[in-house]
Design a binder for these strands. Structure first.
Length: 418
DNA sequence: TCTGGGGTCCTTATTCCG
DNA sequence: TCTGCGGAATAAGGACCC
C-alpha cells in the first residue's frame, strides 16, 4: 500500500500559519516576478480566481473581493516543507518526497493496521506541529493513492481529510467517479484526445484495450492503466539526487539585442555553476535555450535549444559560462524579439568521483578560485564577484511587491508576541 | 506596461558504426 | 568502394508533474 500526503493549498496555507486572522479569508500567492496566481485558498477558488490567472488582469477582482495577495516566499515554503517531510518520515521507512508539498510513503507490511486511523494520526500530528492542513490518501498503488487523496480533498466533511481505497469495489467506484482530466498523469493534451473518443471518466480509460492504449498513448498510458487497476507498476523514487539543474528566466523587456541575451545566458550559467558547487557536484552536459514571447502571436516566434558536451566535468562558473555562450552563439538568430532564456546542466556527478580526462583538463586553478569566490559572495551577500561576460551594473531584482516575512529563517523576521 | 520556474520521462529523428 | 540494415547513442522536442 501507498500513502500520499498532500498539503492543502500549500503556499497559501503557509502564509496563514503566521497570520491567523487570514483563516477563512481568500488568499492568493503569485509566481516569481508577481506574474500569475500559483496558489489559492479555498475561499479564493470560490471567488472565481482561476489557477495561473495573470495578476495584472485580476487586479480589480482582488480589490473588489478583498483577496489578500502575496508574492511567493520560497524560503518560507522550503522551511515549512522540511518540517512536514521530517514529521512524515517517522511514519514509514520508505519516503518519496514528490514535491515541495507532497510525499508518498510506502506502507509495506501495514496490512494489519487500521489504515484510516493511521492516516488520521499523520494528519493530526502535522497539524499539531506545523498548523498546516493536509489530506491523506491510501491505496494499493501510487496513482490510486493520488486518487484517494483527491477524494479526501473533495469531500472533507465526509472523510475528514483521509480516504483509503482497499477493495476492488472501492477502486471501481473511485474510477467511475474520477473525471479523465483529473487523472494523475493525464494532462490537457491527452484528456482532450480521450474526450473526443468519448472517454470521460477514469473508468472508461481503464476499459480501453492494452494494445490500443499502447499505440495511442505510449508506454506511459499503458503503465498508468495498470496502476489505476491496482497493479502497482509505479514504484517509489527515493533517490533525491537531481538529474538536472536549471536557471531560466523571463527578461524584463523584449529584446533583439545579441549582447543583452548573451549576458543573461552567461549569468544563468554562473547561477547553475553555483548551484552545482553548493551540492558538491559537477556536470558534463550543458543545454541552452532562447525563446520569443509565445503569448504574443502577432510577432514571429522562435524557440531553439542546443546541448553541448563538456570535454571534462565541471562546476566552474568560468567554464560553464564559456560553453553556454558558445552554445548560445550557435542558436541566436537576428530579427526576433527574445523574452526568455535558460541554462540547464545535466550529466550530474558528485565532485569526488570525477573522471579525469585524458586530453583536456580544466584549468587546475578553477576549483580554488571558485571556492574563494563562493566564500566572498557568501560573506558580502549582495555585492557579488562576477565574470567579465556578466553585466556589472545589473542587479536584477524580482518584482515582489507583496513579500511576506521569512518567519522561520531570518532572525529579524521572527514573530514578536506581546 | 504587466502571463513563473524547476523538474522528470519518453519519443522521434538523426547519426554513427559494424 | 558502395549499399543496406540494425543497434546504440544522442539531440531535440513534447508530454507530464508541482
Amino acid at each position: 500500500m501507498f500513502a500520499l500526503i498532500d498539503c492543502n493549498n500549500f503556499y497559501a496555507s503557509c502564509h496563514r500559519v503566521f497570520q491567523p486572522k487570514l483563516i477563512h479569508q481568500p488568499i492568493v500567492v503569485l509566481s516569481n516576478n508577481d506574474g500569475c496566481v500559483i496558489s489559492r485558498s479555498e475561499e479564493a477558488k470560490l471567488a472565481g480566481i482561476p489557477m495561473c490567472a495573470p495578476a495584472h488582469q485580476f487586479q480589480q477582482v482582488f480589490e473588489q473581493k478583498k483577496i489578500e495577495v502575496f508574492s511567493s516566499n520560497y524560503q518560507l515554503y522550503a522551511d515549512m516543507s522540511n518540517r512536514v517531510m521530517s514529521i512524515l518520515s517517522l511514519y514509514s521507512p520508505e519516503q518519496e518526497i514528490y514535491s515541495i508539498d507532497e510525499c508518498f510513503l510506502k506502507l509495506t507490511g501495514f496490512d494489519h493496521f487500521d489504515l484510516k486511523n493511521y492516516g488520521k494520526e499523520i494528519k493530526s500530528k502535522i497539524y499539531q506541529f506545523t498548523k498546516l492542513p493536509v489530506c491523506v490518501g491510501i491505496a494499493p498503488t501510487k496513482s490510486l493513492a493520488k486518487l484517494a487523496n483527491h477524494i479526501a480533498k473533495k469531500f472533507p466533511e465526509v472523510h475528514q481529510g483521509v480516504y483509503v481505497i482497499k477493495t476492488q469495489e472501492q477502486i471501481h467506484k473511485a474510477l467511475k467517479w474520477l473525471n479523465i482530466e483529473d487523472v494523475w498523469g493525464i494532462g490537457r493534451r491527452m484528456s482532450r484526445r480521450l474526450k473526443l473518443m468519448d472517454v470521460n471518466k477514469a473508468l472508461d480509460f481503464v476499459q480501453l484495450k492494452d494494445e490500443f492504449i499502447r499505440k495511442e498513448f505510449s508506454i506511459i498510458g499503458l503503465r498508468l492503466k495498470k496502476d489505476l487497476l491496482g497493479e502497482s507498476v509505479l514504484d517509489l523514487n527515493i533517490t533525491s539526487e537531481k538529474k538536472s539543474i536549471a536557471t531560466t528566466r523571463s527578461f524584463e523587456e523584449y529584446t533583439s539585442n545579441f549582447e543583452y541575451v548573451k549576458e543573461r545566458v552567461s549569468t544563468f550559467a554562473v547561477s547553475c555553476a553555483e548551484k552545482l558547487r553548493k551540492q558538491n557536484s559537477s556536470c558534463n552536459l550543458i543545454t541552452v535555450f532562447i525563446q520569443t514571447n509565445n503569448f504574443d502571436k502577432s510577432k514571429p516566434q522562435y524557440y531553439r535549444t542546443i546541448s553541448f558536451h563538456l570535454p571534462y566535468e565541471s562546476n566552474s562558473s568560468i567554464t560553464l559560462s564559456k560553453f553556454a555562450i558558445r552554445a548560445f552563439e550557435q542558436i541566436y538568430k537576428e530579427g526576433y524579439e527574445y523574452k526568455k532564456a535558460g541554462v540547464i546542466v545535466s550529466g550530474i556527478i558528485s565532485s569526488n568521483q570525477k573522471q579525469l580526462s585524458l586530453f583536456e583538463e580544466e584549468n587546475c586553478h578553477h576549483p580554488n578560485l571558485m571556492k574563494t569566490i563562493d566564500l566572498i559572495n557568501k560573506k558580502f551577500g549582495g555585492a557579488k564577484i562576477k565574470l567579465a561576460s556578466q553585466d556589472l551594473n545589473k542587479t536584477w531584482k524580482m518584482r515582489q511587491n507583496k513579500l511576506s516575512p521569512c518567519y522561520t529563517t531570518k532572525w529579524k523576521d521572527l514573530l514578536v508576541v506581546y
